[in-house]
Amino acid sequence: MNHSYDSKLLFAAFLGALLLVPCALAAMDSDYCLMCHGDADMVNAELLIVPTTFDTTAHAVLGCVVCHDTIGDDHPSGVSELSRATCLDCHDTLGQEYLMTDHANYAICGDCHNPHEARAMKAMAGYDMNDKCIRCHDSQTMVDVHKVWLPQADLHIAKLPCITCHTGSEGYEIVLNIVVRQDDRFFSRFELPEYQILKEISGDAGILSLIDTNGDNFIALTELRRFNRNPAYRNLRLEGTLVPSDVSHDLKTLDNRYDCTFCHISGPKSLQTSFLAIPNRDGGYQRVTVEQGAVLDALYGTPDFYMVGTTRSASMNILGLLIISAGLVMPIGHGLLRFLTRKNRQH
């Protein structure tokens, strides 16, 4: 992880910030601020911060005052315009990386991130990362821009996080999501559900128990099969997407993404690592490891994840080879006998 360096810095910044803030104020924890800012009756909509969301973000440990350190006892009636820490104070590595890009001229940290809702990439479902981008680059325009060179552009834009192609990473992994049929009609679409919907389906045992039946916090192939075949879950399916393993903010167009075999190729480096993203109550996600190679299982691995060239199944290949070989029986067998008996036909 390239964040270990970051974390040390963060810790220093965190301590530093605490020392700078007068003790009385440090005691004012988030709960105090959220008494007003978490209540729609107390503050207006722009100043509202959803407590259940904030409490589960990576920033909750900091507390409000670390970032708004000019706050005084007279708040809110005192001087307005409190200070706001800048992201770069603490996220130096990632921040500097971003500032070097052309894109820094088009968007700042706050255009993509809300500090009160910041989540790690691993706490996201996958496609929801594009909510950030789509604010400025709407989907239809993106399909049009990409289809000039990208086959099946609509499918790629609908299924892939933009940063899978527009930032570099050592590796890539598959994230599976449970999707739910929108209404009970046969052909209706499956969408990423709210936590509450899955919670109702799974009951007290928890959402993970839908698939992880033995409760070992690991998804085995047999558990995937059982889930996919279970008639009780016919309105649930698994969909997959491809995400970078590490976060980079070097946002740009990578030349090797023109080459489809960057992704559409199998082999040792290919995508056999997958995770299941389970929604949490707060809107974030938790990742659970899935058995290696699950997506290669022909029929029951993951019904709605198939990448040509990459996730082809070996058993299907063998079956195909057998069929093709059967086509050679006639020419070879018959041809041989034909050759041996050729004299019989010389009249």
């Binding site: 691995g301 993951t302 198939y306 069929i323 070989s325 020419p331």
Partner: peptide, 25 residues
């Protein structure tokens, strides 16, 4: 789902390919 669709396409295509040498022969 996609996997079924892909598998059907692939296996039927293999049948067509198998037909080819037999047919030409």
């Amino acid at each position: 789902g996609m996997k079924i669709l892909m598998s059907v396409h692939f296996l039927l295509a293999c049948c067509l390919i198998a037909f080819l040498p037999t047919h030409v022969y």
